[in-house]
Design a binder for these strands. Structure first.
Length: 552
DNA sequence: TGTCAAGGCCAA
DNA sequence: TTGGCCTTGACA
């Protein structure tokens, strides 16, 4: 073993990034904190797995081996007249997936490897440069890089049980289920697209047409893990920031009176039908404000607005944020705070894209059009989201990381530009005066997303007008005492845009100076807008597989 | 009662 | 040490 060779141990889990993993050698492996209340959805740990839609000979038995992962046959195969079978590849080595293991779909060998490594607290060494290629044939060569890749793709240390208890289930179950549902939904959407293609191309083009563009359709596998402990001893709900480790929480503004009502009916935590629109979250408003909509007034709120609100999930937003902050600093003495901020923004961006792609109208757009709109609005929406989180969910200015470092949460809303703080606060105060609430937020978000200046997209302006009308109706019916609330809200849009543009520029410059992580969706977005066609061209020429493309 | 993701076993 | 298969047990 080379003395200088980097080693990999369980204790070094979740480094800042694969390529920038700290070279610190850990000789003593502390026990894994099995009680970590971790929520993770960081892009670096988001598995982009190739979900192959392949024509398979029925007799080949693909995926039919014992334990092989297959979605419920009835839900997929009955949707197609070909014998389409999902065949997933292990995100670590590319071998065939055997099921969900330690947080995501992996093959049997990587499952075993990960288990042994964690259980036995192995410390590996890479004799090269910690960048060994891991695939099915070479996975044995470098356990250091293999384990690193396991962590990078999102395998969870916490899922390896401290007590080695067999059987049973843990908190991952619902996440796996949701992930499956998402995959199946995407499968169906693709099948519909394929069928449409069939219709237009005719049967002669069927097989080739099907195999070619869809042969290796990448699907982002997202699993958010609320928390995991050994088996079922965990609390029911996902942890809030306060539960994340023993980190002292800075003083937080008191949550708005109605906050829980929004949160409790988060679309992902309760059935949409459970959503009650009887008390909009008016964090910005004083509880005694007469401008708040009453229950009676809120009955006039359009179903469209209610549906808008159901598209957001604030609890997951904060859980993901604090989960990422925690995981990135787990066993790290010190992390680069700017780099960490970029990772958080990147994660937010993934959520942003995911949200947009599941919203009415937007999801029916062509992928290219979706990209155009997202490329023009992502930073605006990040700023708006941050305003929303501060105003409606009590997001503090700062938090203490797992390793004791202070992380400036406000900088997320400023996209890393401290000098924008005053402008940002002014904006927040202005919104507070307008009693900016959650329905306002979601409407404004749609207004940002559906930017009519992005040319060549059919119906965007028309749909945007519809959202604008919904906002107008809402403000008139629920906030009649606030003079021209609608007009003032609309005027906020360019202000957000200006702030976001400054942030974008700053991020781009830092990126060009080599200070920001590369190969991220964030950087791809930054580059997309600066292309000759200013984001109106899809990023098809990138040498690497574009994240945006992969998202599509 | 079936499912499936944990841990365990053992031949290679 | 690896990886395929087996056993276990909570949950739907």
């Amino acid at each position: 073993m080379h003395e200088d060779a980097p080693t990999m141990s369980v204790a070094q889990s979740l480094p800042a990034s694969t390529s920038q993993a700290k070279s610190e050698i850990v000789t003593e492996v502390p026990p894994v904190d099995y009680e970590l209340n971790t929520v993770e959805l960081k892009p670096s740990q988001t598995i982009e797995m190739e979900l192959k839609l392949a024509y398979v000979n029925p007799s080949s038995g693909a995926g039919g081996e014992p334990g092989a992962y297959l979605p419920a046959a009835g839900t997929v195969c009955d949707q197609t007249d070909t014998k389409d079978v999902i065949e997933e590849l292990c995100p670590v080595c590319g071998d065939k997936v055997s099921g969900y293991h330690y947080g995501l779909l992996t093959c049997e060998s990587c499952k075993g490897f990960f288990k042994r490594t964690v259980q036995n607290k192995k410390v590996y060494t890479c004799v090269a440069e910690r960048a060994c290629h891991i695939d099915k044939t070479q996975r044995k060569r470098c356990p250091f890089c293999r384990f690193q890749k396991c962590l990078d793709v999102g395998m969870k240390l916490e899922a390896v049980r401290a007590d080695r208890m067999r059987g049973g289930r843990n908190k991952f179950g619902p996440m796996y289920k949701r992930d499956r549902a998402r995959k199946l939904q995407m499968m169906r959407q693709r099948q519909i697209a394929v069928q449409t293609l069939r219709g237009s191309l005719g049967d002669s083009g069927l097989v080739l047409g099907f195999a070619s563009p869809y042969a290796a359709v990448p699907v982002k596998q997202e699993i958010q893990i609320p928390q995991v402990s050994s088996l079922t001893s965990s609390p029911e709900s996902s942890p809030g920031p306060a539960l994340l480790g023993a980190q002292p929480q800075p003083p937080q503004p008191p949550p708005p009176p109605a906050h829980d009502k929004w949160e409790a009916h988060s679309p992902h935590s309760a059935s949409p039908g459970a959503f009650a629109f009887d008390a909009p979250a008016t964090a910005a408003a004083t509880p005694s404000s007469t401008a708040e909509p009453t229950s009676t007034e809120s009955l006039r709120v359009s179903p469209m607005i209610r549906e808008f609100v159901q598209t957001i999930d604030d609890r997951e937003w904060q859980n993901s944020l604090f989960g990422l902050l925690q995981s990135q600093t787990y066993n790290q003495c010190e992390v680069d705070l700017f780099e960490l901020m970029c990772k958080v923004l990147d994660q937010n961006l993934f959520s942003q894209v995911d949200w947009a792609r599941n919203t009415v109208f937007f999801k029916y757009l062509k992928v290219d059009d979706q990209m155009k709109l997202l490329q023009h609005s992502w930073s605006d929406m990040l700023v708006l989201d941050h305003l929303h989180q501060r105003m409606h969910n009590g997001l503090p200015d700062e938090t203490t990381l797992h390793n004791g470092q202070k992380f400036d949460l406000l900088c997320l809303g400023l996209l890393g530009v401290p000098s924008l703080a005053d402008h940002f606060n002014e904006l927040q105060n202005k919104l507070a005066e307008l009693k900016f609430d959650v329905p306002d937020y979601i409407c404004v978000k749609f207004l940002l997303l559906l930017n009519p200046e992005v040319r060549g997209i059919v119906n965007v302006k028309c749909v945007r007008d519809g959202y604008q009308t919904a906002l107008l109706d809402y403000t008139l019916s629920c906030y009649p005492t606030i003079q021209d609330k609608f007009g003032k809200l609309v005027m906020v849009v360019p202000e957000i845009h200006a702030l976001a543009a400054r942030g974008e520029e700053h991020l781009y410059q830092r990126h060009c100076a080599g200070q920001a992580p590369t190969q991220t969706l964030l950087m791809e977005m930054l580059h997309a807008k600066r292309k000759p066609n200013g984001g109106e061209m899809v990023n098809r020429n990138a040498e690497h597989t574009s994240t945006l493309d992969r998202l599509s």
